[in-house]
Computed example of a mutant assay.
Amino acid sequence: MTHSHPYEGNEIREKKPTVLKGLVFLLLLVAFGAGLFYAATRLRSAEGPKVAHDAPAPLTVAVVKVEPTDAFDLKESYTGLAEARRTSMLGFASSGRIAEIRADVGDQVKTGDLLAKLDTRSLQAQLASARAQVQEARASHDLALSTVQRQRQLKLQGHVSQQRVDEAEAQANTALARVEAAKAQADTLRVQIDLAAITAPFNGVVTQRLTDEGAIAAAGQPILELVEKSHLEARLGLPAASAALLEPGKEYTLVADTGEVTARLRNITGVIDANQRTVGAIFDIENPDTVAAGAVVRLALDRSVGEAGFWVPVKALSAASRGLWTVYVADPSDTGWTAVPRPVEMVHSDGDRAYVRGPIQPGERIIVDGLQRITPGMPVTPRESQRADLSDG
């Protein structure tokens, strides 16, 4: 018995795409592409970048009007020190052991007060010996004078020659010279004893004590420092132009940390210091009790500078080349205001303001803030500043 395959006798049909199906697929693909193109075009039109065609809004800036002047007053301040007119480092004229020091740091002393002394026992013994030599020399001189008197009497009686009288007178003169030499030696010892004591040469205060009792002091070695407190002077250095404005003998007011000090100008050196390029002015302080020696004092002077220009806030300046500066002027036009740069030269700076000169006309408005945001020709809207105090005072 013969079995046949189920598919036997049937033609196997392969599925092949037809032309109609191809056309439908192509139409669907074109329609899909068209939809994507349309969507992309609409999206770019709706959310794409926008280009601004309108001009930016003017920047509001603070300005001040220019007020030119022919000169300005310059306030100058000069610093110096209040110093004692006399300061002495006191010591002994000769060496020796210090027997006593009666003054200490801070002591107020008067002229002639004993401050320190050396051990003078050896000098006292030498002085006693010198006094004895003076007495001996005087006795010899008296004897020589008596001899001269007797020889003269004998000469008158014809018993001795003139030679004997001359010899007696020569011996008397020699004895007198010995007396003077002995007296000089005694005086030298007295001076040495006097110099073995330190006395105050003027009224003052002891500011240093450099040694103590028992030490061996060398000749000229500083023992004490004495500063005159009752007479203080102030030494200040000023430019020659400013020093020329001062009048010797006139009173001026100096300012110290403790307050105002009245001082009278004694003199001006008239010599320019090579290092400081200043002229020295010496003032006598009238009320020394109000200021301590070594205190800093200041002198304020007003000086007029004949230089045409105008004041501007320092913040209105921007650095330029060759030592010049730039200010921006709010320049009016038919369409509005624009920022225009102008070069200026700084004459003087005084805190938050500067005195400058340049091609600026009276009444022009200078921009005083926001310079970092400003470029030449930029449109601006000026606003009068209420904070810029440019008064000359």
Rank of each mutant, 00 (worst) to 15 (best):
Q124L: 10
D107T: 05
A170L: 11
Q133W: 08
S94Q: 15
A170Y: 04
N173K: 14
S95K: 12
L81V: 05
F92L: 08
R102H: 10
D142Y: 13
R164N: 01
A116H: 05
R164P: 00
V105Y: 10
S129N: 09
L118A: 03
Q163S: 08
S122D: 10
E136N: 12
A128T: 11
Q157T: 10
D113E: 12
V160S: 01
Q162N: 11
S146Q: 14
Y78V: 00
L74E: 15
A103L: 06
K117T: 03
F72S: 07
L176R: 10
D73T: 13
D113H: 10
S146Y: 14
D142C: 03
Q171W: 04
D107A: 12
T111L: 08
R97M: 07
Q108A: 15
S122Y: 14
S161P: 02
Q151E: 06
V160E: 04
T79C: 07
Q162W: 03
L81H: 05
T147N: 10
R131L: 09
L176N: 06
T174F: 15
S146I: 08
G112R: 06
D107R: 07
E167T: 06
N173H: 11
D107K: 02
K155Y: 02
A71T: 07
A99V: 08
G80K: 02
K117C: 05
G158H: 01
S140T: 12
Q162V: 01
K155G: 00
V105G: 04
S77C: 05
R102P: 01
A103V: 01
A137G: 11
T174L: 15
D166S: 06
R85W: 04
G112C: 05
S122H: 12
A82Y: 01
K110W: 09
A116Q: 06
T147L: 11
D113V: 08
A99E: 15
R152Q: 14
S122K: 12
Q133R: 15
K155L: 09
L123D: 00
D113L: 06
L145F: 07
L81W: 00
D73P: 13
R152L: 13
R121G: 04
S129C: 09
V165M: 02
A144K: 10
A139R: 13
R131H: 09
A144P: 03
